[in-house]
Simulated assay, not measured.
Amino acid sequence: MKILDKILFAQDFMPSSENIENVAISLAKTFGSAIVPIHVLPDDVVNPKVKHLLDDTANARMVKTKRHLEENGVQVHSPIVKYGVPHDQIVFTASSENANIILIGSGETGEEDEFKLGTTSERIIQNSEKPVLVIKKDSPFQVKTILCPVDFSDPSERALKNAIIFARRLDAKLIVLSVSEVSTTSWFSSKADLEQENKERAKTNAEAFKAFLGKFNLEGVNWLKEERSGNAAKEILQSIQYNNVDLLMMGTAGRSGLNRFVVGSVTEKVIREVPCSFVTLKSQDVISLHLETDIKDFEKLYEAGVQLEKDGLHEAAIEQYKASLGINTMHVPAYSAIARLFDKLGQPEKAGLYRKNANEIKERIWYSKIEEEVRKLRGS
């Protein structure tokens, strides 16, 4: 069972690439993912000897990358070397390889640069429908605190759904942030009227926030909600600093038509200045569930169900437990687990049915043991 099947790792061989390679290993081990390394060479090299040298060097270094990843116990697909514009080739390959997520560095920028996000990284985020994980320079993937800002839109709903699973798998604290935008218009006749307007906005936002959170299963997650008022981008950045956030997960405002790749203005402001690593999600989830239904080992199927239950994916866990019962119909823990999950899903009749099955099997096993003891005593 995999929930993050494939990571497209953009290897640029810059000084920070070794750290990003280690992040790829950590992420792959956490989620049982395969890694697809890619490197993009310029397509404007005219001299054939230089082009040949570049090609040989890149392929040799990609073989070395693959070997290093494999030595660390992760599955690696054949490295990909392409020519062209880096962000175009990376986005295209992520789609053609059906990767769950693109892993990139934030880019090599100087301390004096106004924006801390490199051009290639920014364009990948703008153009990719796939989620993008951007690792800040020299930032290890030691995630203790995750921040997920929400505006109650579909992209932010997707971001929170994925952030919850990341928090469970990484055993990290999750902060869900909502910012009530403050009006600064001069239309109001008095300062008191303006303050009352912003007070009402905050109240309405708090009610919407509560209703939004009610959609999610946060059972077993170490989480808290944070409510702020002000400029959304500024408040998100301040929350990151105040809470010492290690990973930001944000939904981006994907548009339709010709502008469908435009990143929302709040996201754009935040990702240019954010001091930590971050994930952006537009129209696709990082998490894409692949249930194990073709293996014949009921214990592996049952263990997959246990992991799905820990991930909070209750419906999927039930299906996995049922698959294990298809092989071993006497497995009481699977019946009990399904009953427990149906209780959590508010389906007591189904829970009772599976609980009854579990009890009947327990009684059958108990009576079988009694009969066996009686036969031993009789010497038969």
Rank of each mutant, 00 (worst) to 15 (best):
L8C: 05
Q11E: 15
D12I: 06
P15D: 12
P15F: 07
S17R: 06
N22S: 12
V23Q: 02
A24W: 00
I25S: 02
S26W: 04
A28D: 00
T30S: 09
I35E: 02
V36K: 04
V36A: 01
H39N: 13
P42M: 03
D43C: 05
D44L: 05
D44E: 12
V45T: 13
H52G: 13
D55F: 14
M62T: 05
T65H: 01
E71S: 12
S78C: 14
P79H: 05
P79N: 10
V81L: 09
K82G: 11
K82V: 08
K82P: 12
G84R: 01
G84D: 00
D88H: 14
V91Q: 03
F92L: 12
E108H: 13
K116L: 03
E122C: 06
V132Q: 03
D138N: 11
D138W: 07
F141G: 01
L147C: 05
V150K: 00
D154F: 08
D154L: 05
L160I: 12
L160D: 01
A163C: 08
A163Q: 02
I165G: 01
R168N: 07
R168V: 03
R169V: 15
L170G: 04
E181W: 04
T184F: 14
T185S: 15
F188C: 07
K191Y: 15
E195C: 07
K199S: 04
E200G: 09
A206I: 02
A206F: 07
F209P: 00
N222F: 07
G230A: 09
S239E: 12
V245D: 04
L247H: 04
A253H: 14
V266T: 10
E273I: 08
V274M: 06
V279T: 03
K282C: 11
S283K: 09
V286R: 03
S288V: 13
T293V: 00
F298H: 10
Q307D: 15
L308V: 02
E309S: 11
Y321D: 05
G326E: 09
I327K: 11
N328W: 11
N328Q: 13
H331Y: 15
A339Y: 03
K344A: 01
G346V: 06
G346D: 00
P348R: 04
A351N: 08
G352W: 12
K356P: 14
N359H: 08
I361F: 05
K362S: 11
S368G: 15
E372M: 12
E372H: 08
E373I: 10
R378W: 14
S380F: 12
